[in-house]
Design a binder for these strands. Sequence first.
DNA 1: AATGCGTGGAA
DNA 2: TTTCCAAGCAT
Length: 357
Amino acid sequence: MTSELAARLLQWYAENARSLPWRGHPDPYAVLVSEFMLQQTQVDTVIPYFNAWMERFPDAASLAAAPVGDVLRQWEGLGYYSRARNLHAAAGQICARFGGQVPAEVSQLESLPGIGPYTARAVASIAFGADELALDGNIRRVLSRLADMALPARSKEGKAALTAFGRQHLPGGKAGDFNQALMDLGATLCTPRQPACGRCPLAEHCAAHALGVEEARPVLPPRKTVPHYIVTAAILQRDGLILLAQRKPDGLLGGMWEFPGGKQQPDETLADCLARELQEELGVEAAIGAPFGVYRHAYTHFKVTLHAFFCTLMQGEPQPLDAAQLRWVQPAELRDFAMGKIDRQIAENLLAQLKER
DNA sequence: AATGCGTGGAA
DNA sequence: TTTCCAAGCAT
């Protein structure tokens, strides 16, 4: 039994579905890759990464066989790098436990690293036609408005209420389209601010719209103010090679490569900061030379202003005291190492400068 | 349960 | 320029 709400939604989707590279493909691996990339990341950002990824790693076996460094390099720029490590590990388990085929059951999917309640149900419904509601940010927002839910949308009770409401309308055998239709609606019309209710196929069914409180739904927790750190980084050169440090596997930018350095402490000059960091992280004494740019970047939970400097080793051989490993690399090799946004910018500026001379 | 985890686009 | 926040998961 398809509710009138679901029928209208599916009709709208038939006429307005976005054309996306992972849609219309029967390949569950392609759906899985797209869902990993889409976690907390917008469609327009994902599309070029998805296309390049499928070219490079067309199936679970090719991904599982690749070195994790290559996987991170391919993911570079998408952020939340644990997703890349988890997808790589999941591909390994898919080959080892499921004969190279993405499993169809929610419980099997959730047993894979990086797959939680949302991704498991998205893959099960989209790739395998299972009757599952996939509750993501878009669907949470749309359903919160349709039901005018006053509960915090991300609380345990809120999620349970939204799941129950969504399941009431879930059309049997069409859950994949239902989920994707709600997500498209949320991304294009039922947006966080200034939703286009005038063009919404569900406006007549929307309790929040009837009350004019669309923008008050969903109820979200208040944002916290983020700290701002001043950090330094060193470009250490020797015999034409440049020193890179690989971050430890977990935490911020886990497994990514960077120019060594760290946070400035109170009452410390930038030069003092960098000299101290190089002593602590590499066990060396270094002279701090010419500045090489100021870089600003906003992460989710803090902001950074980074000051880069050319440095010269004075005493000691660099040791990976705080890094997973150190490498002296040729300038041309810089592009082979996965880096976060700021360090990639430094590396590219460095290459440009070396090319000039 | 609360927190940490990237980046880019929109307003 | 600043603020918000987007197809979540792990711990």
